[in-house]
Simulated scan of single mutants.
Amino acid sequence: MSNYPLLNAFLTMLWFFLWVLWFMLLFRVIHDVFSDDGLSGWAKAGWTVFVCILPFLGVLAYLVARGRGMGERSMRRAQAQEQAFRSYVREAAPSGPAAGTSKADELAQLAGLHDHGDITDAEYEAAKAKVLVS
């Protein structure tokens, strides 16, 4: 028989989960401090020292003082990365007549994809019809 009751196992898992959650929150706050371009170097140093010396109070104070901006800054960074990615794709892989490809070249590429098994018969026929119509 076991000397570790089910309730103790549950409480151990709960404490472990809270411990992991705490570290995720701590690292999220530290990441936000260093990725915020609006903070000066002294402000970043101050928040970092506060969070490292008094972690619970520091994280709580940071969330109260700057918590709303964390999501907004994260959203702006994600949008900027998405825009940069889309811009890179547009520059790196132009398509259509602007790329200097003819319909025959596009059909040859489609046939190669179809023969290689990268696209299905239905996708091939739909793409072929789109190339021939344009």
Rank of each mutant, 00 (worst) to 15 (best):
R66V: 03
W47G: 00
G71E: 01
L107T: 06
H114N: 08
L63H: 00
W47N: 00
I119S: 05
H114K: 10
F34Q: 07
V64D: 00
S35Q: 08
T120K: 09
G69Q: 08
D32C: 04
S40F: 02
M75V: 07
R77D: 08
E123D: 14
A129F: 05
E106T: 15
T12D: 14
I30H: 06
S74R: 01
A98T: 14
L6G: 02
V89N: 10
G112H: 07
H31F: 09
L54I: 09
M75W: 06
V29K: 01
L132V: 14
G58Y: 02
I30E: 04
F56N: 10
H114G: 03
K44T: 09
L60R: 04
T120C: 08
V131W: 03
E72F: 00
D32N: 13
A104Q: 14
G117P: 13
A80E: 12
G38P: 00
L6P: 00
Q81H: 10
H114A: 09
D105I: 09
A99H: 08
A99F: 07
D121Y: 06
S40R: 03
P55Q: 12
T48N: 06
G117M: 10
F17R: 15
A122D: 15
P55M: 11
Q81T: 04
G71R: 03
R73N: 13
R90G: 05
A9Q: 14
N3D: 12
V89K: 11
R68K: 12
V20N: 04
A61E: 02
L25E: 06
G58Q: 03
L6A: 07
R66T: 02
M24C: 09
V133C: 07
V51W: 03
D32G: 02
L110W: 04
L63C: 02
